[in-house]
Amino acid sequence: MDDIQRGDPIEEATLVNLIQRAQIDLEPEAFEGLYKLYADRVFRFLLVRLGDVDRAEEVTAQVFLRLIEKIDKFRIAPKDNVAIFSAWLYRMAYNKMVDMLRRHRPAHHIAIEHAEHIADHQSIIEQIEEQLDFEQILNKLPLLNDQQRQVILLRFVEGLSIAETAQIMQKSEGAIKALQHRSLESLRRYLQK
């Protein structure tokens, strides 16, 4: 538990251990470990969809509170628990985001400057350059539709595979491949303008 750091790559054994501890003993440390592993991922997922850092942070916290209540619903599979749990958590974040969007109007402005997307050790110049690059991408992502944005996020930001993306988006792998192609074409067209 103590060795889990923020943003560490997710391993199957670690994840299963955390889930079991959270389900059986309801250990707060297990939930904290899950939060460290998935907080930034959920935040990015929500940020791309919402475009607002504050709302993304708020919804991220609500997603993990929901995870505490619903952790017993998750069934540990013989394998691929990382992909399954990620898909389950992203789906929970998506539902929570939808609930929030139903209560509030969607944000029209992206407060990208509030995102702490630069590592502490990076220089100021690098932070600005990377911020501009990601800001350009975020500025063009709203031009895409929801599914194209989600595919871009899951496939190229979160680094999920075709199968994981298909499971999260509840589509077939062929549909994800086609959607991935159209998303890259659209994004390239918008970036060239």
Partner: peptide
């Protein structure tokens, strides 16, 4: 290759 956005330190600590 673009740097991925992350939660702010305060936001992360608050959520944790």
């Amino acid at each position: 290759g673009t740097p991925q956005p992350r939660l702010s330190a305060s936001g992360f600590a608050r959520g944790q």
